[in-house]
Amino acid sequence: MLLIHCPYCDEKRPEIEFAYGGEAHIARPHDPSTLNDEEWEGHLFIRSNPRGRHHERWRHIHGCGRFFNAVRDTVTDKFETTYKAGEPRR
């Protein structure tokens, strides 16, 4: 069970308080109707799925309820950092 730092609560809490939210920094296009099918497919489905540094979203669902972003290594499962939603990619 991972130990996750919530940047809003500023505490490390056990994983069962959190819900994983998929890859981070995949912003919904401002106007999806301007995207062609391939671009829309990219937004909906294409994921980087790297071995190594992964930007991902978590929600402190059984805590403050906030979504935030994290950088975690997918080979070691170790968090490099977590930061608030809306902050620039790290």
């Binding site: 890859e23 991902e56 080979v75 499962d77």
Partner: peptide, 11 residues
């Protein structure tokens, strides 16, 4: 969560 670690959680 996404992972290549070939290990999982106890819960």
């Amino acid at each position: 969560y996404v992972s290549y670690s070939q290990r999982g959680a106890l819960h």
